[in-house]
Nucleic acid binder design. Structure first.
Lengths: 247, 247
DNA sequence: GAGTGGTCTAGACCACGAG
DNA sequence: TCGTGGTCTAGACCACTCA
């Protein structure tokens, strides 16, 4: 097993240091790949492998026809589902813009499995795309079955992950008895890579969440896709015995 | 934006279908890269990009000097931290071997931050490496501060994620008051890629878990690294109000 | 149109693994 | 030793962006 770094890893390391030290500031354009070839005395495929690494770490954005740019560092989104406060919250930087789009769709195969409803059930879909500056950094789709009364949600939100929808549900009298979050890691799909301006080799945190009312019906489901370098999920469990004794 | 698949994606699709249909069975060797070049009429870098995709999906294992092999499909590990049953469990296939190695280490920078102890504090480290057949598929490191009494754990375990350690702690009288799990997605490090037989482009689920006793001291911390295609984390929240009323 | 990144090719050399 | 995959090169063509 080769222990010393190969060439492209070495080039990536050097560029990472330059970015870390601010020699290449946020939104700066990196030298063109041709310039990097001469700077490091390497061929283009080698240079591009190094850039792949930085892209997958979320350090650069590649723009076909324009150049490679240092990505604006983003605060990490924390997805939490705290058992005591009984609601799902996300902490996030204040300077986040989240436009919301709403439409009615019919359940496809994956959605009807997730929600436990028949195919072609009508669902209200809320799509949240959050941006920090000009770069997108999260994608959230929330689904509410048409039978469930859903109050209107704002057109722009302070929460990137669609917490408004659950808030609107509870404020309109819908009780949430149980919530299950399923978290996986995977690489971005081609479509996600486009909308999130990341590479197909970038890891994302994939969160599927369903909320049930006391009767066991699904009243809300969420599909969250978060680039790995800008997200984490935190779950805290308090001992139930201790809580009950305190009560 | 180019919508049609590029060449290497197309080759990966065809090979994926062959694997899915069983034309290439588990543990079979794929045609050599030279053979794939002629089969698809592509150059070697293009063929290798296609193989990269399959490797990152967990479908093949690459063995330098030997060939590329179809990976044995594995059952997905589910990491759960259920509030009501108050312990951390993992469901996993029965046919899993988990050798355990134990030693005493001193806390480095990241460990003393995680555990909230001074640097160079002595810790007992349990390393769990789980295998299905000959291929490894999870890596777990559990740390218990030397001050905390830890009963011995078996040399081989049925649980790939080190649940034995928590069980040993509670059975020796240590109370666990709160547990926090922090979940992130990222690409495998070079070292993890070697031990887990995956590529450095493969996504992994990274779980950091700390458990506190009633006094707020950390009595156990776990670092879990799970290949994305073989793992998920599931958290269920039940409404506390409803639980208290039922009690 | 000029410059950029995205893709692909043909060929080379090296490191590893198994007979 | 020989076939395998791991790395790197030099060059080409195309697609995209922007002046």
């Amino acid at each position: 097993m080769l222990m010393v770094a190969n060439r492209y890893t070495h080039i990536a390391d050097q560029l990472r240091v330059q970015i870390g030290r601010g020699l290449l500031a946020a939104d700066d354009r990196l030298p063109s790949e041709a310039e990097l070839m001469t700077e490091f005395g390497a061929s283009r495929p080698t240079v591009r492998l190094a850039l792949d690494i930085l892209q997958n770490e979320g350090l650069i954005v590649r723009r076909h026809g324009s150049g490679n740019f240092v990505r604006q560092p983003v605060e990490r989104i924390t997805y939490t589902d705290d058992k005591l406060s009984e609601d799902t919250r996300t902490t996030v930087a204040a300077a986040v813009k989240v436009p919301v789009s709403t439409k009615v769709v019919e359940a496809d195969n994956s959605l009807c499995v997730l929600l436990g409803v028949p195919r072609d059930t009508r669902l209200t879909e809320y799509v949240y795309r959050s941006y920090q500056g000009s770069t997108p950094y999260s994608l959230a789709r929330i689904y509410v079955p048409a039978g469930v009364l859903a109050a209107d949600v704002p057109r722009t939100s302070a929460s990137p992950l669609g917490d408004d929808v659950r808030a609107a549900l509870t404020s309109s009298g819908v009780q949430l008895a149980a919530t299950q979050s399923r978290i996986t890691a995977r690489l971005a799909t081609a479509e996600e890579a486009r909308t999130l301006q990341i590479g197909t080799g970038t890891a994302v945190l994939d969160i599927e969440r369903v909320s049930l009312d006391p009767a066991g019906r699904v009243v809300e489901a969420a599909l969250l896709v978060l680039p790995s370098y800008s997200a984490q999920a935190v779950f805290t469990t308090h001992s139930l015995v201790r809580d009950l004794e305190a009560a």
